[in-house]
Design a protein around this nucleic acid. Sequence first.
DNA 1: ATTTTTATTGTGTTCGAGCACATTTTAACA
DNA 2: TGTTAAAATGTGCTCGAACACAATAAAAAT
Lengths: 346, 346
Amino acid sequence: MEKIYTIKDIAELAGVSKGTVDRVLHKRGKVSEDALKKVNEVLDKIDYQPNLMARSLKKKQIYSICVLIPDSANDPYWQPCIDGINEAKKEFKSFNVKVEIFLFDPTSTSSFVETNKTVLNSSPDAVLLVPLFHKEAIDAIETYNSKGIISSIFNNQLKSNTIKSFVGQDLFQSGRIAARLLDLLIKKGTIAIVHIDEDYENAIHMQEKEKGFRDYFENLESGKFEIKTFKVKHPQFKTTLKEYLESNPAIEGLFVTTSKAYQVAKIIAKKPEKKIALVGYDLLENNLEYLNNKTIDFLIHQNPKRQAYLGTTSLIEHFIFEKEISPEKLLPIDIVNTENAKDYFL
Amino acid sequence: MEKIYTIKDIAELAGVSKGTVDRVLHKRGKVSEDALKKVNEVLDKIDYQPNLMARSLKKKQIYSICVLIPDSANDPYWQPCIDGINEAKKEFKSFNVKVEIFLFDPTSTSSFVETNKTVLNSSPDAVLLVPLFHKEAIDAIETYNSKGIISSIFNNQLKSNTIKSFVGQDLFQSGRIAARLLDLLIKKGTIAIVHIDEDYENAIHMQEKEKGFRDYFENLESGKFEIKTFKVKHPQFKTTLKEYLESNPAIEGLFVTTSKAYQVAKIIAKKPEKKIALVGYDLLENNLEYLNNKTIDFLIHQNPKRQAYLGTTSLIEHFIFEKEISPEKLLPIDIVNTENAKDYFL
DNA sequence: ATTTTTATTGTGTTCGAGCACATTTTAACA
DNA sequence: TGTTAAAATGTGCTCGAACACAATAAAAAT
């Protein structure tokens, strides 16, 4: 256990006052070359670690972090995010940080824009957001950046060099995993990728998952599988899918790229004459129900709670511990079946 | 954002001095009923959260935590634990905690006992240990307890009411997961549970995994599977397993209950005439090699790094944040295949 | 040489909790 | 009632870093 040095120690070792040491440490100038040298010599010899307790006790500044996430009233997928953020808040409650959650309607672009405006008005030190709307998110982040506000994103990837950090999963790989699981479930046959409820062109996550999924089978070269894509939006969903399945009786497996696998499960559960393998995303209650009755074979866990937690803590720790924010944090892609589902609710 | 109260605030609100408030908060006595009432009334109205920065700045006591883990020179499974502990150390380096790692030889009971003696001599505030040897671990924990030293365990479960906390996995469930995966991999046939390299009677983890595994198939009632058990210890391992497989040609799947699946893989990889499904534990390099060439189908990740990390941080946070130590923390049981293996190395 | 200006260095206070010690109040006893 | 013991309460210093401000030294101007 090596000695812990304080500013006072350094001052004594260098033969100057603690004020001078402080000026050197913070590069505030007003230090003679002679004194600078003396202090730096000591600093080179020892490993000075400022006492963060003392620092944050003294510093009056309260850092403000705003988190923008979709309202879970519209999509239960987002519910765990709140828990993750609150967990981070609780963990750092004694520190000088204020974390505020702002909800927007995931079905409304203008709601997203408006919420960003509100956030901007409160002029926070950092913003963590889910960039659900590509163009609008880029704009918002640009604005934050121009005001010196740090922005991080999670859940959805976005290419922008003003973003400090992304927390999420490798969606291409995620698609490959789904492919591997379906490869295992059915040894051959036709598989349909089902994109529901979101606009394919605007949903990069769907595209990435599809790419990864197809990539797996292309490299397999077995020729045992045929992959199709099926896109559908909500209102007409039920009948459309039913028709699609009836006109494609060769389909042995389905890969649902969103958290809406339960909607598909509802339909294929009614056709017990033939078990269709089904892989989807996210541990929503509805999904778990069909996982447990084995209509859904596997769910891939995107761990929104942990994403939100890590996104928040990395910002908090940046401010209070001066930790660097890692530009990309990819979470493991958890494979969930009947047996380990409950483990993921910590 | 509700106001943050300090002891001084409370003193003013209650019309007493901060010394009195301090006595009430810490139940140090020497407070008149009248003053006690006044302070408690204020305390009831507001939500006082002591400033942990100020507290740990003032408190000079350095808490000492010792961690006892098997030496990874003997078994690479333990290597990640060191990383997990160091991560915890790094995270809390500014706080008044000292974490020391002690290694023991996992093949030697006396090494375990000796290391515990060394730890005891350093009289730490808490001990986190891997109770590899059942009886000796109970004894050690008993001794720690009598000296007022908190003890937590991880990786291996142990029933003892003097233990503060266990971090690990539900091994019964873990066995069920392996069963589910093999059920999926082969639709019928004989499956052997392979216990290698450890003494079955002393290794509760093996027993629990076997119980869970058998439980799954018993409740299946399909009659499609036959489950056998095969125990073997190191030296003669290779030839014995080969003979066993030859004399049991009906075997379609193997479940290896330890991290030594690669040893089994080495053997069955040489019999390409028939693919035997193989499920094992832990992301050792050797295992990953066979996972990638698909000799091993699935690995169950026991996440030793996270176990060690959580075990350590829960003790640290107990001391510096006065957090309660949860008696049991069960980690998710991660299913790993070729596609998501690399995700688990953060 | 003396004053003024500027550069450099040192001192002292603050943050909030914890605790030792000083001071005041109350009770006990002669 | 006065004295002493005991109980209750208040005061003030400390932890380490940050920063304002005072103090000193050096340089420039008169």
